[in-house]
């Protein structure tokens, strides 16, 4: 019940804001921002209601109002950062397309890649070491090359042609 009440209040405030801001646009000096200008910012914001839907393509009524809100804020001369900040303050960091503390989100993948690369190259060194000693044996060398019979045959055929 209290949740619904809270949400209703939020919508009411939002609607009021929209009305107020559209009222101010009437007196604003700037021409009405174009759809493209609105979409440029809306594209980088995520619908707070629908999952994984950028604001510029979300078909819900709420998102339509939010886009109009962006338009009015642009008309008021607010910058992209200010508009994004407004949405973050109102609806939380989830409206941004990336987590605010970006380094934390990249840390794990980068660390995993480095660890994988380290293990792999350490592995390469380990795997290669005993063979360098053995590779003096021509038999082993010949055998490893002959593994790819097909390539060998191919090379021979090509040599013959030359």
């Amino acid at each position: 019940m209290s949740k619904n009440f809270l949400r209703d209040t939020q919508y009411a405030i939002l609607l009021l804001l929209i009305l107020l801001s559209s009222a101010t646009t009437v007196f604003a000096q700037d021409p009405t921002p174009t759809d493209d200008e609105v979409n440029r910012i809306a594209k980088e914001l995520y619908c707070p209601v629908c999952e994984s839907t950028p604001l510029d393509v979300c078909p819900t009524e709420a998102c339509r109002q939010w886009r109009e809100l962006i338009r009015s804020m642009l008309a008021e001369g607010k910058s992209e950062e200010e508009i994004k900040q407004y949405f973050v303050t109102q609806y939380g960091a989830r409206v941004l397309s990336e987590p605010p503390n970006r380094w934390a989100s990249y840390l794990v993948p980068v660390a995993a890649f480095l660890l994988g690369a380290f293990l792999l190259f350490r592995g390469f060194r380990l795997w290669l070491r005993p063979v360098t000693a053995e590779s003096a044996s021509p038999k082993d060398e010949a055998e490893s090359v002959s593994q790819d019979d097909y390539v060998r045959q191919l090379e021979e055929e090509l040599k013959k042609r030359k």
Binding site: Y46, P54, A93, V95, S97, P99, P109
Partner: peptide, 30 residues
């Protein structure tokens, strides 16, 4: 590595909510 990026991106919002209480979106830019 691409798998780790994908897996981490999918579960990161859960982890963030669990540990910091903050809901976040991990979208295409990431």
């Amino acid at each position: 590595s691409i798998l780790v990026v994908c897996f981490w991106g999918v579960i990161y919002p859960l982890i963030s909510e669990l540990f910091t209480g903050q809901k976040v979106t991990v979208g295409p830019p990431f």
